[in-house]
């Protein structure tokens, strides 16, 4: 049961919404209704970029109840593995793409009394649908959104006009920083915090919450990171006896797919656990880049999440 049910979609609209950020509106290729989704969900978009097969996760931004189209925002990352560059340069109105079904690894906590959303840059995207959902449920929430400048921050005007004083925008170009200590220091019992943005911002937010005595159970984060690059290495498949080379800018999963090997996966961000694979042997050092395995599991060296993790050099034998 590997992978995700794929659906063919057509790009119905492309809009530049900020510096290096484009919004894409996707409709079913046969104009069938799409499935509804829950706030915080993402989809994976399959891209055939030259000879490379890429599947990047993007948060769904529209109204969860809108079954006519899905909307995603893509930041053109300078150090791109090719996915966001492909979306920016090769995808236009009318282009057909394949997407997976919505998957939610960043849902609002349903038992929370209040939700504090903290976004940095493109990290605003999962909160778009989350706020839509919370607003519909008349749930108490506030957004704190850090941008480099108004030209770099997507949807600033839209958010302020739709949600009014619940939206707070902080402009780095004017020296404004999210006053997180003050924000978290004055919240009612039962509040949950959610943070999405660059890794240093996530780490800072989680640490700030901890130092203010927030229980771990009340803080949530999501980070879409591409599989970190490294050196080329060899994967041996114990069951089929095949050998596959993983190039420096590829994940194990991508290399397997390129060679027609069917391996399990779902989120491709090291979070969902679906691609957990048994390690039969390994003569290199495993770099675990996932958020799923426990520390004892990492130390044991018996498991690897092939969507994100790799070895520094040498070869690894997997139970595939």
């Amino acid at each position: 049961m590997s992978g995700n049910l794929l659906r063919r979609v057509r790009v119905a609209e492309v809009e530049r919404v900020a510096n290096r950020i484009k919004r894409f509106r996707l409709v079913d290729a046969d104009n069938a209704p799409l499935s509804e989704f829950s706030g915080g969900s993402h989809i994976s978009v399959v891209m055939h970029a030259g000879d490379r097969l890429l599947r990047n996760p993007y948060s769904l931004m529209g109204a969860p109840s809108d079954t006519s189209s899905y909307q995603i925002s893509v930041l053109n990352v300078e150090d791109s593995r090719g996915g966001s560059k492909f979306m920016h340069e090769n995808v236009s109105v009318g282009t057909e793409l394949e997407i997976g079904q919505p998957l939610n690894l960043f849902p609002p906590a349903k038992l929370a009394k209040k939700h504090v959303l903290v976004a940095g840059g493109i990290g605003i995207t999962p909160f778009m649908s989350m706020m839509n959902e919370l607003d519909g449920l008349h749930s108490d929430f506030e957004l704190h959104y850090g941008v480099r400048s108004l030209e770099d921050g997507a949807y600033c005007k839209y958010l302020q006009s739709r949600y009014g004083s619940r939206v707070n925008i902080y402009r780095q170009d004017q020296g404004q920083l999210i006053p997180l200590e003050r924000i978290l220091g004055d919240q009612r019992l039962g509040t949950h915090m959610y943070v999405c943005g660059p890794k240093p911002m996530i780490d800072w937010s989680l640490q700030t919450a901890k130092l203010l005595g927030w229980p771990d159970e009340n803080v949530h984060s999501e980070q879409f990171s591409a599989p970190p690059p490294g050196k080329q290495f060899l994967v041996k498949l114990a069951r089929s006896g095949r050998e596959v080379i993983v190039r420096g800018h590829q994940s194990i999963l991508e290399a397997l797919e390129e060679n027609g090997v069917d391996a399990p996966f779902l989120c491709r961000g090291g979070a969902c656990g679906q691609c957990e694979t048994q390690v039969v042997a390994c003569d290199g050092f495993i770099e675990h880049n996932d958020h799923f395995l426990t520390e004892p599991e990492r130390v044991s060296g018996k498991k690897i999440m092939i969507c994100m993790s790799r070895i520094q050099t040498g070869s690894i034998t997997l139970d595939l």
Binding site: L184, G185, D186, Q187, R188, L189, G190, T191, L212, G213, W214, P215, N218
Partner: peptide, 10 residues
């Protein structure tokens, strides 16, 4: 006590 307590309580 919980009725009026803020976050930061353990």
């Amino acid at each position: 006590l919980l009725e009026t307590a803020p976050m930061g309580l353990r």
